[in-house]
Simulated scan of single mutants.
Amino acid sequence: MSEIFDLRLFSEVFITLFVIMDPPGVVPIFLALTSTLTRAQRNRSARQAVLVALGVIVAFAVFGQQLLSYMHISLPALQASGGLLLLLVAMELLTGKMEEPQPSGAKGVNAAIVPLGTPLLAGPGAIVATMVFVQGSDGDASSWVSITLALLAVHVCLFLAMRFANVVHRVLGDSGTILISRIAGLLLAAIAVQLVADAVIAFVASA
């Protein structure tokens, strides 16, 4: 089983993206953006947002490596920049900025696509983290299977959180949702610092 599935890599990708994309923290934002929709429309918005986010992240995971090669960007540079971006996302989680609903934009724009699908779910943090995992993987079948399953698992969690947003919010309450967002921000900050530290070590080793 280990030849086609790497549990350690799966866990790393899943936990990192789960913390970045923060399914419980999406609940109050999703409820605010879809407050005027019916139950059926809200469920459809949840599906659309998850599909858009998954499509954007997969596109960067597949073509990101070629883009980096074309622009002559090294993995340590990507790790360092990714760590800084993740640190910004962590600060937003810790300060509560991500809990503030963003305007849905011009009239006629589907909120499930913008801003929910991207950049809220498929934001720079999730995109860079996925590209770092792909770049750092061995490129064998087990790595791709593990990363793909982790991506799907996180997006399933996102869909379930939005699909049952009313129930989740009722169970956690405002205080519970905020508490989970703060803990997620703390964990994400630690992940960001580790990425930057690994990048510095790699730069020194290659010097």
Rank of each mutant, 00 (worst) to 15 (best):
A126K: 05
V145H: 14
E92M: 14
S143M: 10
Q66P: 10
W144M: 03
F133C: 00
S142C: 05
L87W: 14
G136F: 06
L120V: 08
K97R: 13
L120A: 01
I73L: 14
V128P: 00
P124F: 05
G123R: 12
S74N: 09
E99G: 13
P115M: 02
K97V: 07
I113D: 02
T118N: 07
L86D: 03
G96F: 06
A106F: 15
V109C: 03
G117H: 01
G136E: 05
T118L: 11
G139A: 12
I113Y: 07
V114M: 10
L86F: 09
K97C: 02
W144N: 01
G105D: 11
A150H: 12
G108T: 11
F133G: 00
Y70P: 04
M91I: 09
G139N: 11
E100F: 13
L116K: 09
G105I: 11
L94Y: 07
S142E: 05
I113V: 15
L75K: 09
L151T: 01
A129G: 02
N110D: 15
S74G: 08
V114C: 07
S142Y: 05
L93P: 01
H72T: 06
P124G: 09
L94C: 06
V145G: 05
A77I: 12
L93R: 04
A129V: 03
A80R: 10
G96S: 06
Y70M: 13
P76G: 06
G105P: 11
S69H: 15
E99K: 13
S69C: 07
L116F: 15
S146R: 12
G123E: 09
G123L: 13
M98I: 10
G125K: 11
G136K: 12
A80S: 11
A141Y: 11
T130S: 11
K97N: 07
L84C: 03
L67Q: 07
V109D: 02
S143I: 07
S143Y: 08
P101F: 03
P76F: 10
A150I: 14
V132R: 00
P124E: 04
L88Q: 10
Y70F: 15
V109W: 03
L67F: 15
A129K: 04
V134M: 01
M91S: 05
K107M: 12
G83Q: 05
